[in-house]
Structures are given as C-alpha cells and as structure tokens.
Amino acid sequence: MPELRVGAKLLQVAEQANLLDALLVGGIAVPYSCRAGSCHACLVRCLAGEPLDLQPEALAADKRAEGWRLACQCQVGGDLQVEPFDPQRDGLAARVVGLDWLSPSVLRLRLQPERRLRYQAGQHLLLWSADGVARPYSLASLPGEDAWLEFHLDCRQPGAFCDAARRLQLGDGLRLGELRGGALHYDADWQARPLWLLAAGTGLAPLYGVLREALRQEHRGAIRLLHAAHEPAEHYLAGELQALAAEHAQLQIELVTAAQLPAALAELRLVSRQTLALLCGHPTTVDSFARRLYMAGLPRSQMFADLFLTRM
C-alpha cells in the first residue's frame, strides 16, 4: 500500500484512493468546499512523489510548477509526501475595513490586503477565517476604482465561515488564499454587443463588478441585468443598480422574486444573435437561466456561467 506522509505523520492508504479523502480519514485537517476543483480550498503542495491529477488544468501552470495540487482531484498512486496550504505561511494578510448588512441575509465585507492585489472584475478569492475555515467568494469590487476588496456573503443558512463572519469587527484580520479567474469577465471587444447579466442571490456580486467594468469601458450595446431574490427585501443592491440605470440609458434593471422568475424568464426574447449572457448563482437557477436562453435562440458558446456550489 502507498505511504502518505504529512509532517511527522505517516499514513497507509489504498492505491488509487482520493487524496483528500485519505487526508481526512488520517486526521489531517484539510478544508474543502465543492469537491469539484473549483473552490481551491483543498490545496496541498507535493514535497515528494506525484499523485494522479484528474484535473490538471484547474491550476495555473506556475502553481503546478511550485508543486501545488487540488487534493479533491488527485488519486494516490504511489508513496507521497504533501503539506496542506497554510494560510499563515502561504496566504496574504488582510484587514476588515467595512462590515454592513445590505439586506436581512447579505453581509457586505470589505477587506484591505497588506499589499495591492491585481485582479479583474468577476474573479473570486479564497478567504480564510482566523480559526482556519476557508471559503471562496466572488469579488464585487472594481479594480482601480475601489480601495478595498468587497464580498457579499449570503448568511441565510448557517455555515462555518458565515458564522465566523458574523463575529468579525472592524480591524480584524483574515487571510487571503488563491485568486481565481472564473468564466465571468468583461472583454473590450464586446463593447457594441448586447449584454445580459442574470444573477440569483449573491450571484449578483461578480456581475455587479462586471457591470461597472463594462460601463467604465463605455459599453455601447444594451445591457440588461436581471436579479432574482427570494423576496423583495433581498434585492440588496437595488438602490445602486437603479442609480446606475439613471446614469446610463442603455442599462435596464429587472428585480424579480423567486415566485416571479419563471414568468420573467418566459418573457425573455432574443433581439440580436450577437447577445452575450453572463450567469451566476445556485446551479439550479443558473441551469434554468441557460435553458431559457438556449430556447430563446442564444448559443451555449455565448453564455458564460459561474456556479455557487454548496459544500458536499
């Protein structure tokens, strides 16, 4: 049986065992969230040996060259020595500079990193609480314009990170993990094309950043943003969005509840084959967005989606 070494601990594991499972069974505290290679909470560095990586493209080439792997996507094929990502050693320090409730369930968290972080609208970042809980969150801030990193935390359901976030105070420290580029972005070549932004819940966060990036780049095509929330009080950026619409004639804002969403989607009509759609939220809602857009005539290749996966 292959041997898996972590620090002074030596584990005997079955060949082809999932690396994350082997670590957890062996009592090694490795955080994880999606188990799909998306959140990057389960980063480990290989010090000796090489696991079978089922999703090598999920990590940037420079990270792979440094030995980093996603434990959830690796199988143990031989003797292996790894060290889990240590937020104190490997992460970037950040300080809480803003905390406020945008709605009964959405907490806006603003962080100031100890050094400037280069990112693009629509990307997401791994946040580590002081007690070692890791969770990926999309950036709602706009680089070059906002002086902080902004995140919108959905606290409707209990969760380890949300519970920790409720206890945060101004000046508290967090650690930042890997910055990830998802499917959501704005391309300058899109300026004349109609743009549809469809969000559910806090899936609005990255699209708010993308929207402001599009407007900053003087997007000329029509922009339609639809936000679906459980109830009217959860349209947590309604004021900001309406203010942007008042300043930009090409921007249309639609705020619908979950009960109103099927009717709103049924009314979607494609006015141009050049339309691009950016979708974000819970997988079930994003799937309903995508199916309706496809039925309306929008090719899948013109849809860009990020899913907010729940922990498995």
Score class of each variant (00 low, 15 high):
Ala164Met: 00
Ala222Ile: 11
Cys280Ser: 13
Gly177Ala: 09
Leu47His: 06
Arg89Glu: 06
Val96Pro: 13
Asn18Glu: 12
Val133His: 13
Leu309Gln: 10
Gly26Arg: 07
Ala140Gln: 03
Glu231Ile: 11
Gly209Trp: 15
Phe161Gln: 00
Gly77Ile: 06
Ser33Thr: 00
Leu139Ala: 11
Ser138Asp: 10
Leu270Glu: 02
Arg292Val: 01
Pro31Val: 07
Asp287Thr: 14
Ala290Cys: 06
Leu265Arg: 06
Met312Glu: 09
Arg193Gln: 13
Leu255Thr: 11
Phe151Gln: 14
Gln260Leu: 02
His124Asp: 08
Ala140Cys: 10
Leu102Trp: 10
Glu254Cys: 11
Lys63His: 10
Gly173Asp: 04
Gln88Asn: 11
Glu57Ser: 15
Ser105Cys: 08
Leu59Asp: 03
Ala14Asp: 13
His235Trp: 14
Trp68His: 07
Leu176Gly: 02
Ala147Trp: 06
Arg110Asp: 05
Leu270Ile: 11
Ala305Glu: 06
Ala41Lys: 05
Glu234His: 15
Gln217Pro: 10
Leu276Thr: 07
Arg156Val: 00
Leu125Asp: 02
Glu150Ser: 15
Ala305Val: 04
Pro283Arg: 03
Ala266Leu: 03
Pro136Ala: 02
Pro158Glu: 00
Arg291Val: 03
Ala266Thr: 00
Val82Trp: 05
Ala29Tyr: 08
Ala71Gly: 09
Gly67Phe: 01
Arg156Asp: 00
Leu47Lys: 08
Ala160Ile: 01
Arg115Cys: 13
Leu179Asn: 01
Thr275Cys: 13
Leu279Met: 08
Asp163Glu: 04
Gly37Asp: 10
Leu211Thr: 09
Pro84Asn: 04
Gly78Asp: 09
Asp189Arg: 14
Val13Ala: 03
Glu66Lys: 15
Phe85His: 05
Ala17Trp: 07
Arg292Tyr: 07
Tyr236Thr: 00
Asp86Trp: 08
Ala214His: 00
Leu125Met: 14
Leu268Arg: 10
Gln16Phe: 15
Lys63Ile: 06
Leu226Asp: 08
Ser33Tyr: 02
Gln73Arg: 10
Arg45Phe: 05
Glu234Asp: 10
Cys162Met: 03
Val133Thr: 10
Ser38Gly: 13
Glu213Trp: 15
Ala199Arg: 05
Trp148Asn: 12
Cys280Lys: 13
Ala200Tyr: 01
Ala296Ser: 03
Trp190Asp: 01
Asp287Pro: 10
Arg156Leu: 03
Ala249Met: 08
Ala245Asn: 05
Ser272Ala: 13
Arg216Ala: 15
Leu170Trp: 07
Asp146Lys: 12
Leu195Phe: 00
Val30Cys: 06
Arg69Cys: 04
His219Asp: 03
Thr310Glu: 11
Ala233Gln: 12
Ala249Asn: 10
Ala183Asp: 11
Leu117His: 09
Ala121Trp: 11
Arg110Asn: 07
Ala249Glu: 08
Ser272Trp: 11
Val133Ala: 01
His152Asp: 07
Arg220Cys: 04
Ala266Arg: 15
Arg118Ile: 10
Trp190Gln: 04
Gln112Val: 03
Ser38Pro: 00
Leu107Arg: 05
His219Leu: 09
Asp79Pro: 14
Trp148His: 13
Gly239Glu: 06
Gly281Tyr: 07
Asp163Met: 01
Leu251Asn: 02
Leu198Val: 06
Pro113Phe: 00
Glu3Ala: 12
Leu153Asn: 04
His282Cys: 14
Glu247His: 08
